Computed example of a mutant assay.
Amino acid sequence: MTESRAAGSTEAVDAHAVAELTRLRGSIDNIDAAIVHMLAERFKCTQEVGRLKAEYRLPPADPVREREQIERLRVLAESARLDPAFAEKFLNFIIAEVIRHHETIARA
């Protein structure tokens, strides 16, 4: 196929652009897969943390650790030229899920 239509556009896109989009999207798909696998590994570790916290009756949340992690991630984001606010939102989302898991483990 030498031509394709861009999403929402009536202009033809040349073959080089289509090939480049396909290549870049393939890379994005690979990165997304790696992120999913890394998150799965991270959650395996946090599940173990949750079991230890439950065993020793520690609270599911650790605000001091969370603040340290957020600051550490913001610094990493800046050095990687990623928006630190985005990195913080992403980590807060993960932390909320981890705390939810820890609460579930503690109730079991």
Rank of each mutant, 00 (worst) to 15 (best):
R25V: 13
T46R: 01
I35Q: 05
G26D: 03
I105C: 06
L73K: 11
T46Y: 03
T104W: 01
A80S: 08
R100Y: 14
P60N: 06
E20A: 09
A87P: 06
T10G: 11
V18P: 01
A96R: 12
A6E: 06
K89E: 02
R65W: 02
Y56D: 03
N30G: 08
F86E: 00
H102I: 06
S27Y: 02
G26R: 10
T2A: 03
L91N: 02
A85M: 03
R65H: 10
G26C: 01
H102D: 05
V18I: 08
D83T: 08
D32M: 02
Q69M: 05
L58D: 09
P60T: 06
I95W: 00
C45V: 10
A96P: 00
R67E: 05
A106P: 00
V18H: 00
P84L: 09
E78S: 10
G8Q: 02
L76I: 05
L76D: 09
N30Y: 12
R42K: 13
A33P: 00
D29F: 03
E103N: 10
T2K: 15
A19F: 12
G50V: 00
F93R: 03
A87C: 11
V18F: 08
L21Q: 02
I28K: 01
I28E: 00
R100P: 06
R81D: 09
E3C: 02
L58E: 06
F90E: 01
E71R: 05
I95L: 13
I70L: 03
D29T: 08
S9H: 00
N92Q: 11
I31F: 09
V36Y: 02
L76G: 11
L82T: 04
A33V: 07
R5M: 06
E20C: 08
D83G: 04
E88F: 12
V36S: 02
E103Q: 14
V36E: 01
E88I: 12
A6M: 09
F90K: 08
E11Q: 03
A6F: 07
Y56H: 07
R100G: 13
D62E: 14
D29H: 11
L82I: 15
P63R: 12
M1A: 12
R23C: 13
L73Y: 15
R42M: 10
G26S: 04
R42T: 07
E41L: 15
L82Q: 04
L21I: 10
N92G: 08
V36Q: 03
D32G: 09
D14Y: 00
V18L: 05
V64K: 01
H101Y: 05
H102M: 04
G50D: 01
V75G: 12
L39D: 14
A61M: 03
L82Y: 04
R72C: 07
A87T: 06
